[in-house]
Structure formats: C-alpha cells, structure tokens
Computed example of a mutant assay.
Amino acid sequence: MSEQRVAVVTGGSRGIGRAIATKLAAQGTAVVVGYAGGAEAAAQVVGEITTAGGRAVAARADVADEHQVAAMFDTATETFGGVDVVVNSAGVMALSPIADLDLDDLDRMHRTNIRGTFVVAREAARRLRTGGAFIGVSTSIVGLQFPGYGGYAASKGAVEAMTLILARELRGRDITANTVAPGPTATDLFLDGKDQATIDHLAKQPPLERLGAPGDIAEVVAFLAGPGGRWVNGQVVRANGGIV
C-alpha cells in the first residue's frame, strides 16, 4: 500500500472546494474530487492536478445519499489505497429573512448541509486511517448573525455541533475532527445575487479590508489536514480576516 496520503474533498469542482483539492494535491496528497453535478468542472480540476504532477480522480456523489458517498470512498480506496483526509466542502445557500424563507429552500439546505455533512462524517468515521483528519466547512455567519442568513446559518451551526462531537467520539484513534468557518469569500456561491455596493460593504468589514479568497481557506484546511495541525482538534476555526 502506498504511503501517500489520500484525501476525499466534496464540493471539489468549484469555489473553496476546488482550491482545497488543488492545494492538498500540491502538497503531495492524492485527491478524490467529489462533485454533485459539475462533471466538466471536476474533470478540469483533475486535469489541473495531474498536469502539475499530482494524482487525482473525480467521483460523483450527492453527499446526502449514503450509497453514493460510500461509493465515493470506495473509489478512494480502490484507486489510491485508503482515506486519510476528508473535507466536506459541499454546500448550498439560500438567502431570505426568516419570515419569508421558502420552506423548500430550507429543506434543500437541510438535506445538503446537515444530512450531507452527517453522511460524509459518518463514512469518514468508519473509513479514516490512523493519523487521519476530518474537516467540516461551516460559515462565520453563525457568529456574525447577518440578517437574511437565518436558514443557512442554522444549517451550518449543525455542522459545527456534529463535528465537535465527532472529535470526541474518535478518541483513541489518532484522528482529528475540526470545522473551518470562512467569512465572506469571493466564490460564485457567495457573490451570486449581490450588487457591487453590497460586495464592497462586506469587503470592508474585516480589519484586513478585503473579501477572503478561496486560497485563504484552502491554506487553513491544508494546515489542519497536515502534520502541523495534529494538535488542533475539536475546534471551529473562523477564517475571516478578523471580521466581527
């Protein structure tokens, strides 16, 4: 069996997930690029990694479907020999005041963000090798309480709760479990539907006076996934440039 570490990254075809997949690959990790619908985009990520000399394969999986998630982990084992790192970056967001939120949108966020995280975390708990790491992705909105984000923040608050419990349930196995909670980050998911004035306003919120970049978040995830992050466990890391 190869000693190369192997990562499964859901939502790996775009945005923060794509940045995480390419960053881990650049550090020498073999990567399974999980995607739900963006087959072409996932293939581009795999191509970028392999062109740079890395190892990667794409795997389609709806994170809320336990059978598809199990098959994605099977792909990691069959292709690369096992699983050492799991990053659940897949997520959906619908913005609306709580009074006006369409419950179908709430159910959609619940299915992907809560059930999806749970399914991926459950599979990770069963499959991660000794020395492994699970990293969930939340949002700093959980602590910032921006109006319009009630449903989304609720779903991501669940991500934080289950990940912190997972860390304690993995006692004795030398596996860490943490959550990274990005602040406003310049991804298609975040920018969609926002006018320039809103974007400029949000960019001024952190003391560093800019939006985060996907690469900023990928650096934090790579730290938690690597040898330098082994003593960080059961934590929520708010990667947001100091926004309060």
Rank of each mutant, 00 (worst) to 15 (best):
V142G: 09
P147N: 01
K156A: 08
V142Q: 12
Y149C: 08
G157C: 03
A154R: 10
I165L: 05
G148A: 05
S155T: 15
V159F: 09
A153H: 12
A161M: 04
L144K: 13
S138I: 03
L166V: 09
Q145D: 07
A161W: 00
S140C: 03
G157H: 06
E160A: 01
T139V: 08
G151N: 11
Y149I: 00
M162Y: 11
G143S: 10
E160K: 15
A153L: 01
E160M: 02
L164P: 14
V142D: 07
S138A: 15
G151D: 05
S138D: 09
G143W: 12
V159S: 07
V159C: 11
K156C: 11
G157E: 01
I141T: 15
A158C: 05
G150K: 06
M162S: 03
V159A: 08
E160D: 15
Y149M: 11
K156F: 06
A153D: 10
K156M: 07
S140P: 05
V142Y: 10
L166W: 07
S138P: 14
Q145N: 09
S140A: 14
G150S: 14
V137W: 00
A154E: 04
G143H: 14
G151F: 09
G143A: 05
I165F: 01
L144Y: 12
A154C: 08
Y149G: 03
G143K: 14
G150M: 04
G151Q: 12
T163D: 02
I141A: 14
P147V: 01
A154M: 13
I141C: 09
Q145S: 10
G148Q: 08
T139I: 06
A153F: 05
Y152K: 11
T163M: 04
M162P: 04
I141W: 04
S140D: 15
V159P: 01
G157L: 00
G151V: 07
K156R: 09
S155F: 10
A154G: 15
Q145T: 03
I141E: 15
L164K: 14
A158Q: 08
L144A: 02
F146V: 01
V159Q: 02
G150V: 02
V142N: 14
A153P: 13
V159E: 02
I141S: 15
G157K: 09
T139Q: 04
Y149W: 11
S138N: 12
Y152F: 13
G143N: 14
Y152A: 00
A158H: 06
Y149K: 00
K156N: 07
A154Y: 11
I141Y: 11
T139Y: 03
V159K: 03
A153V: 02
S155M: 05
G148P: 14
V159D: 02
V137D: 00
I141H: 14
I141F: 02
I165M: 03
G150D: 06
T163W: 05
K156S: 09
V142F: 04
G148L: 09
